[in-house]
Amino acid sequence: MAQRFQSVIQDFQEEKQDYYSKLLQHPAFYTIQDHAETRQKQLASWADITHAYFKQRNLNNSSLTELSSESYPFFCLQNLGIPKRLNREEIKLILNTMAQQGSILWENENFDGFQIQKYSANEIADEIYKWAKKNYLIGEINTLEFIVRGNQTSQSEKFYDLPDNQILYALEVLQENKKCIIFGDSTQGYSAKFQ
């Protein structure tokens, strides 16, 4: 079981690989927790791992129904007597988190089918920070528009012309890691200071 997940998480940094490996082997990780902080971190981890799984399988789209079917191998721990599987509601919570991060896009209001985005929020965050360093933008304040479609952003950048909500989530990841500070709101527009 651990080997199956090992291939999924192999692209993460070493520390993350170790952390996700421990999480995926723990039976309690397959129960979504009630405690707010724990739940947030658990869902974020699940979203990260699930996106890595989609990428490994080269999936472009899927659905909640497919993911929660008995035959679907993911979201299931089998190294115990009785296999432990996340239920439909719990999988929906993970997909909602992924949609929030911009890793997937719901196809319609039914919230069942979805398109899988190429890059996860973490990957985009890494790319934006690399780009900021390369362009000597550390310490500078830049608008979200400038970051995504500015004259210093080439079309080859992974984050070029991505939806604003996906970029914003990536900036939030950077802010959590104390690599940037976000200013502004949805009406005035957002800016970020890299540090």
Partner: peptide, 24 residues
Amino acid sequence: GKLVIDDSIEGQVYYKNFILDFQI
């Protein structure tokens, strides 16, 4: 947030909160 629960058919088992305690 001190514990996490594994809620399965086999029963409810409580563990220390590894999700928050394990460091990345």
